[in-house]
Structure formats: C-alpha cells, structure tokens
Amino acid sequence: MEEILYFLQQVINGLTIGSTYALIAIGYTMVYGIIGMINFAHGEIYMIGTYVTFIVISALGMLGIANPFFLMGAALLVAVLVSCAYGFAVERVAYRPVRGSKRLIALISAIGMSIFLQNYMRLAQGSRDMAISSLIPGGWEFGIESFAVNLSYMQVIIFGVTLGCMLLLSTFISRSRLGRACRACSQDAGMARLLGINTDMIISMTFVIGAALAAVAGLLLGMYYGVVNPYIGFLAGLKAFTAAVLGGIGSIPGAMLGGLLLGVAEALTGGYLSTEYKDVVAFGLLILILLFRPSGILGKPEVEKI
C-alpha cells in the first residue's frame, strides 16, 4: 500500500512539473511548426512573465489587497500583456530581419536575444533571488499512517490551467479562421502568401501566443516555487525544448505529451533511483526516442517538398 501511494505521489509531482514544461514547450513547437526555427529566447520570456507576476503581486499586496484569486487574475492579465509585447518585439527585432537568410544566422540571432534579455533583466531587477510568500497554501492529504500523499491546491491549479490552455489552443488552431491560416503557413508559407494570407501577421501572432503561454507558465511556477532570478529561463527553456522534441517538434499535442512524459520520468528517477540521475534519464529518454522515432512521438516525418 505504501509503495502504491509513494508511486502516486511521485506521479503527481511529475505531472505538475511536466505541465509547466508543456506550457513552455508549446512556444517552441509553434514557432518551429511555422517558420522552422528554434526561438531560443523563449525561456527568457517565461522568466520575464515570472518577474511581472512578482511585481504585480507585491504591488497589489502593498495596497492591501489579499484575495489570492484577484491577485492571481490581475497578475495573469498584466503578465500576459507584457510578455506578449516582448514576444512581438523579439520577433520584430531579432527574427524578421533575418528570416530569409540561412538557418544558422537566425539561430545565432535567437541566442543573442536570449543573452540580451537575461542580462537586461539582471541589470533592471538585480541578480539576487526574489521571493514572494505562498498565495494559496495548503492542499489535500490522504493515505495511511506510514505515508500520506500530498496534493497541494497549487498543483491542481497548475494541472488544470495547463489542460485548459491546451484545449483552448487546440480548438483555436483547428476551428478558427486564424488557426486555419496558421496551419496553411505551416504547410507552405509561400503558397499561403500567394493565396492572400498575411504571413507576417500570422508569424507575429505565433510568437505572441507562445509568449502568452510562457507568461502563464511563469505565473504558475512563480506562485508555486515562490522565487525568481534572471537565470531561471535557461534551464526551463532547455527542459521545455527537450519536451517539444520528445513529443515531436511542430506538434502541439506532442508538446503536451512530451512535457508530461519528461516531468514524470524526472520525478520517478528522483524517487526511485537518485536525484543525481534525473537529467541523465530525461535526456537518455530523448536520445532513445530520437533513435527509434527521429521525428518525436507524435511528430510527422518530414516530407521532402519538390
């Protein structure tokens, strides 16, 4: 019994962290799906989202507002708006001018943007960890005498919000006019342009949606862990990118699946082997999947266009 509960606890831990990997992974996968480049500055957008969350919550807290749901809603609104502005600006400044050139140039531009944003936040906010107290503490506890499974309210919120965002996004892509335009761009951007789709606008929109989801992840993780520093974007971005590749880069359900799988794999390794091997297993899994399914779990094999 204890073993089952322990397993359950580790799966819950893994799903929580996996959800946020998934949210960030969407940004990578969407941009890749449409323009075929990897937006390495995406992790930094997540970091900026977390900072904005902290600033809004602290500012409203100072005004004496304590209702956690109001705080969360306000922070969500501001964080999404600010991050969207960053996502839009990053695309305009760093990617659009080099879009026609070789892939390597776009890649270097992306890495440069990432370094710039990281250091810019460091100068603006200082390099020390900032912390806020838990807004929604507590949770449910169930189990037996020797081991109790702990499911915190925040974990449920993280999982729920992620699932909601995914459903919303999938519906948007598959049902709306803009979503159809997105899919058209992803299949053949040149042809889409000939047919009267404003591809520049669609690409901007992709970056903005990715940034909005990164801001949601920033808000959720910021509230869950309660700390932020200018360097959190790098590791989070790396993990989310791995999740995107694992699930099949370019595929939105793939990013979700990849994120959850990565999170659970990490938690189970930490729980049964050793925390030291967490990353070894996570990246080993990536290598294995890429060996046997080079396009990821849900990715479609690339068809050579003639």
């Binding site: 580790q10 929580t16 962290i17 702990n150 959190i232 050793s274 925390t275 967490k278």
Partner: peptide, 17 residues
C-alpha cells in the same frame, strides 16, 4: 546521501523520498 543540481527549482521528488 544524494546530490541535486544547483539552480534546480523542483525538489518534490526528493522530498517525497
């Protein structure tokens, strides 16, 4: 006796253990 990665944010798996 276990190591963690500096810069990591999530220790829930370790704590459950």
């Amino acid at each position: 006796f276990e190591g963690i990665t500096a810069g990591d944010k999530d220790f829930s798996a370790l704590i459950s253990k």
